Amino acid sequence: MQQVPYMKNFNIKVLAPENWALYKSVRLESLRDSPDSFGATYEQESALSDSDWQARLDLSARGLVAFPLVAEQGGRAVGLAWGVIHATEVETAHIYQMWVSPAARGKGIAKALLDEIKTWAIDKECDCLALDVTTSNEAAVCLYRSSGFMAMGPPVPLRRDSFLMMQPMEMALHSVAESTF
């Protein structure tokens, strides 16, 4: 696992296939803690086999361009985020599974995860970052807005038959001036 140290007493690591148990643990914790923030549910993902979890991090076998990150503090996983570039839309990097544990919120971890994915997306020559945020999650909406994301289109349901809504958001990675030269 590649490790990036931060001054605020946490590290961000890139998850490798051998880190599947750590990934499983933090992903399930995120779904338990924040069930209204994700399209997937704890019930769906807790039913996955260990080989399913291993396969998720085997990016080359899946033909997936992705950047799965975990934030650790004091030897414990406290944050998660994935950057993903879909083959059908290589100009956009998507952010999925963004979460920080309640005890670690407000310490710059979410911003650091966003910054790591932004840097990765720029290195991959993407033009923008995209994500969906549950509209009732005011802290996340504020974080994304203050980071440069803008609402794109109308909100959509979080899940089929859900009253919760997600707002698609995007951030341009290059200014118009940069793209004309």
Rank of each mutant, 00 (worst) to 15 (best):
M1R: 08
P5K: 02
Y6Q: 02
K8Y: 08
F10A: 04
V14G: 04
V14F: 07
L15W: 04
A16W: 05
P17F: 07
E18K: 13
K24W: 12
V26W: 02
R27W: 01
L28W: 10
L28Y: 09
E29Q: 07
S30E: 10
L31E: 05
R32V: 12
D33E: 08
D33P: 03
S34P: 04
P35M: 09
P35A: 10
D36F: 08
S37H: 06
F38L: 13
A40S: 14
Q44T: 02
S46R: 11
S51H: 08
A55R: 08
A55C: 09
R56Y: 09
L59Y: 10
A61P: 02
R62C: 12
G63F: 11
L64G: 02
L64P: 05
V65E: 14
A66E: 11
F67I: 13
E72G: 06
G74A: 12
G74N: 09
R76T: 01
V78Y: 05
G79I: 00
L80M: 04
L80N: 04
I85Q: 05
A87G: 15
T88C: 15
E89H: 01
V90D: 02
A93F: 07
I95L: 11
Y96F: 07
M98W: 07
W99F: 06
V100I: 04
V100K: 12
S101I: 07
S101Q: 04
P102N: 07
P102V: 01
A103S: 05
A104F: 00
A104G: 03
R105H: 10
R105E: 06
G108C: 10
I109G: 12
K111Q: 12
A112Y: 05
A112D: 02
E116A: 05
K118C: 10
K118W: 11
W120D: 02
A121V: 01
A121W: 03
D123L: 04
K124S: 10
C126G: 03
A130V: 04
L131W: 10
D132L: 12
T135K: 08
S136P: 00
S136C: 06
A140T: 01
V141A: 06
C142M: 10
R145I: 11
R145H: 07
G148C: 04
M150F: 15
M150W: 13
M150Y: 15
A151W: 11
P154E: 15
P155W: 00
P155Y: 01
V156E: 06
V156H: 03
V156Y: 08
L158W: 00
R159D: 05
S162D: 13
S162A: 10
L164M: 13
M166L: 11
M166A: 03
M169H: 02
A172I: 02
L173K: 11
H174K: 08
S175F: 06
A177H: 10
E178L: 04
S179A: 10
S179L: 14
T180E: 13
T180R: 14
T180D: 13
